[in-house]
Write a protein that binds this DNA or RNA. Structure first.
Length: 804
DNA sequence: GTGCGTGCCCTACC
DNA sequence: ACCGGTAGGGCACGCAC
């Protein structure tokens, strides 16, 4: 028979002594389908004299087939023996070959079976195919089809990628649980909510009177978990999604199922939820793709989100413009009244609703990444950017006839991590002042364009100077790179081109898919440089990373020189951009000057105008009279502010300090002087001294970055974290610790001894907030105008200050 | 006992 | 462990005086 089919999830299974792929997906008429195919399993043996080796290798009985091929390995032509055997025999066979000769290079054993299958079969995720095959009978594959809960199980005979790739909207189930305890499995699950198309439900065993229609009351926890399982089966989604569900909801469900001796099976092949061994843990449900939105947001979205945390509440507020339902957890007990529980149900349901909407919002991005990277959705949503870069490279190696480099093992990683850091970007020290009439130029994707323009990669790195090679001076001497384009720079060049193409298409006719596609290529391009310097990368090359940084320093410094020579005054520069004052030059002249600079740049390097600015301010460092780097504020001719590095944009400063500084920067940039800001600042200080500022503006937030016990320095937020843990609150890595600094009877109490939880009793310490928050945030701004805040505060109000 | 350098720690910039 | 280096700045700590 012939069907139109779209693959969503991949899995492998051993039947007898053979390995098969199970490809879960949908048919064009919406049927649930599983296509069965033989797995494709092989690895390469690279040898200078393959003929001699071949005879010995062929004696190994597990090997099914060998081919001697001309391949490339790290750009160099090699003779390779492609050794085919069953997947579960690969390491046996490989070991036997190693025994023949220890030095023999074996490669691609470490490429995962699904990746290999996708590459070799060409059956890619979320791409429509015409599949020819037979319906598997109950006798095929030792009855495999009986164990798979789908409408159709097909033995694949032939597949053809369809020209007409129509859109596919997956059926999604979003879910969320609420529990008695935060620790995984410790208390009961109180309720499970889930949302799908036209369906909203809360399952619970709390028996309240007259519940809302979406509430379904179960007998007990066991019944509730079983009902959830039944609902998943009935809804039969393509994707099940949650928020931090890898780390909480899924492990909790498993723990409670185990505790209650429930055989919880969610997969379409009746398998249990599978958890990865490493950290962070991820949870897989076979056939139904489990997507944890948090992980994907962390890798693909967080750089665009200027949020204090990536909590569902904040992310939903930012992306969906709607937040979570507020609720006070502490008061909820089994004995609480029905009204309290009603609220709790509503809250729980709302989380699933938000998760569902968030999924729909992010879906174009996930889909585009999946299509570009060609890895299954499950792994795409869990890899970091370096993993995505690597997958992209691996899926494109066949075009270059390349054998993949091996993944570094433990010892190799240790060596790499121990290597000295290389010199990074150049940052120009600014001269503190208020400037007028500015412009910023920056290099478009500077590091990526350097990698492409100078062919910087491991395989193109030369051992010594060759005629006609690229060369660059680094802190470890000169390095040389071949001019024959390597596959890594080539692929990156393509990514940059595609990004440009889709960006243009997006401009011409905007839609979400184009936006997602353009963005995915942008992220991928930007991650390339980091990838080559990352110790876990197959194509790790510190020399290439160091050279990229060295070229960047060279070009930004040259551009600064040229700009100063061109009659401008460069104020500041960081990595790939420079700010300068126009002096008497016009915008038009400046754009002409930009053209000239561009005509002198090599390869695909390009300098752009970022914007013209009406005013800009640079301040001194707190220590010393020098201008502070990475700290400035600008206003453009439309009145839009660009604030970088200032306390205003730092979450570890209290809102009052941030707000006051923000207002002052705003006023100064708009008005061109400090006069009215000074009046404002004095007023705030007066209010603070009179304790007229609400405590909520004085809460300091700092993230817990590691387990409490690992801290060598016990700083205020660590003390607070301990307090919270003692109170039975969930204190985990990544938690944003909130506290304020209170007055103390002790004369010389440390800050940490004065730190209190926001709802703890105590008056805030006026002296601390004045001297450690407000003044530091505004002092060096006024200093630019020769105004000394300390003198003003002390001079006028010395007596009052003395009290603190 | 104070003052200062140093290291830890967090969070920003690009 | 899950992309890099550069930088500012608070806080705790320990040594010098």
């Amino acid at each position: 028979m012939k069907i139109k089919f779209i693959p969503l999830d991949y899995d492998s299974v051993n039947i007898g002594d053979k390995t098969y792929m199970k490809i879960f997906g949908r048919t064009s008429d919406g049927k649930d389908c599983c296509v069965i195919d033989r797995a494709i399993s092989f690895f390469y043996v690279i040898s200078k004299k393959p003929e001699r080796l071949l005879k010995k290798i062929q004696k190994i009985k597990e090997i099914k087939k060998v081919e001697v091929l001309d391949k490339n390995y790290l750009e160099k032509p090699v003779k390779a023996i492609k050794v085919f055997c069953e997947h579960n025999k690969i390491s046996d066979v490989s070991d036997k070959i190693k025994k023949i000769d220890k030095t023999i290079m074996r490669r691609e054993k470490d490429i995962n079976l699904t990746t290999k299958y996708i590459i070799e079969s060409g059956i890619k995720p979320f791409c429509w195919y015409e599949i020819n095959g037979e319906i598997a009978s109950e006798f095929d594959f030792k009855g495999l089809s009986n164990s798979i809960n789908v409408d159709l199980v097909i033995k694949l005979e032939k597949s053809l990628e369809l020209k007409n790739q129509k859109e596919f909207s997956p059926k999604v189930l979003a879910f969320d649980i609420e529990t008695e305890e935060f620790e995984i499995g410790k208390g009961k699950i109180l309720m499970i909510s889930f949302v799908s198309d036209n369906l909203k439900k809360v399952l619970t065993f709390k028996k309240i009177k007259n519940p809302q229609s979406y509430v379904e009351i179960c007998n007990d926890e066991v019944d509730m978990i079983k009902k959830f399982q039944e609902y998943v089966k009935k809804i039969n989604p393509d994707i099940i999604t949650g928020y931090f569900s890898d780390g909480f909801d899924m492990p909790y469900l498993r723990a409670r199922a185990e505790k209650n001796k429930i055989d919880l099976k969610i997969g379409k092949d009746n398998s249990r939820i599978l958890f990865s061994k490493g950290r962070p843990v991820n949870a897989r449900t076979k056939g139904i793709v489990h997507v944890d939105l948090l992980k994907f947001i962390q890798t693909a979205y967080s750089q665009y989100l200027q949020l204090e945390t990536l909590s569902l509440n904040e992310v939903a507020k930012e992306l969906l413009k709607e937040g979570k339902k507020e609720i006070n957890f502490k008061n909820i007990k089994q004995t609480s009244g029905d009204k309290v529980w009603e609220n709790f149900f509503e809250y729980n349901l709302n989380d699933s609703v938000l998760t569902y909407k968030l999924f729909q919002k992010l879906w174009p991005d996930m889909l585009e990444f999946t299509k570009i990277i060609q890895e299954p959705l499950f792994s795409v949503t869990r890899q970091g950017m370096s993993g995505l870069v690597e997958s992209y490279i691996i899926h494109n190696l066949n075009r270059f006839n390349e054998i993949a480099e091996k993944r570094p093992i433990h010892d190799e990683i240790a060596i790499r991590r121990a290597r000295k850091k290389y010199e990074g970007a150049f940052v120009l020290q600014p001269k503190p002042a208020l400037y007028e009439n500015l412009a910023i130029f920056d290099f478009m994707s500077m590091y990526s364009s350097i990698i492409v323009s100078f062919n910087l990669s491991g395989p193109t790195l030369l051992k010594k100077k060759e005629k006609n090679s690229f060369e660059i001076n680094t802190e470890n001497g000169k390095l040389y790179f071949s001019k024959k384009q390597g596959f890594i720079p080539k692929l990156l060049g393509e990514i940059i081109e595609l990004r440009k193409k889709y960006k243009q298409e997006l401009k011409n006719k905007p839609d979400n898919i184009k936006k997602a596609r353009s963005n995915a290529f942008k992220l991928l391009a930007n991650a390339y440089y980091g990838y080559q310097g990352f110790f876990g990368a197959r194509y790790y090359c510190l020399e290439a990373a160091a050279s990229t940084a060295a070229f960047a320093r060279k070009f930004i410094k040259e551009t600064i020189e040229k700009t100063n020579h061109g009659g401008y005054n460069v104020i500041y520069a960081d990595t790939d951009g420079l700010a300068f004052s126009l002096n008497k030059k016009t915008k038009k002249q400046t754009l002409e000057f930009l053209k000239k600079l561009n005509s002198e740049l090599p390869g695909i390097m390009e300098l752009e105008l970022e914007d013209f600015y009406k005013r800009g301010i640079w301040v001194t460092k707190r220590t010393g009279e020098f201008g502070a780097k990475k700290k400035y504020a600008l206003i453009n001719y439309k009145g839009k502010l660009k604030i970088r590095g200032f306390e205003t944009v730092r979450r570890d400063w209290c809102p009052l300090a941030r707000e006051v500084q923000n207002k002052i920067l705003n006023k100064i940039l708009k008005e061109g002087n400090e006069k009215s800001s000074l009046v404002y600042a004095k007023d705030i200080i007066r209010k603070l001294k009179k304790r007229e500022i609400e405590k909520e503006f004085l809460i300091i937030k700092t993230q817990l970055k590691k387990p409490i016990s690992e801290y060598k320095t016990i700083s205020p937020h660590v003390v607070i974290a301990k307090k919270m843990k003692d109170q039975g609150l969930p204190v985990d890595i990544g938690l944003l610790i909130q506290y304020f600094i209170a007055e103390s009877k002790l004369k010389k109490a440390l800050v940490r001894e004065r730190a209190k939880l926001p709802d703890e009793k105590g008056e805030y310490d006026i002296g601390y907030y004045l001297n450690n928050q407000i003044l530091p945030a505004i002092e060096n701004i006024f200093e630019v105008f020769g105004v000394n805040m300390k003198v003003i505060v002390d001079g006028h109000e010395q007596k009052k200050l003395g009290e603190f």
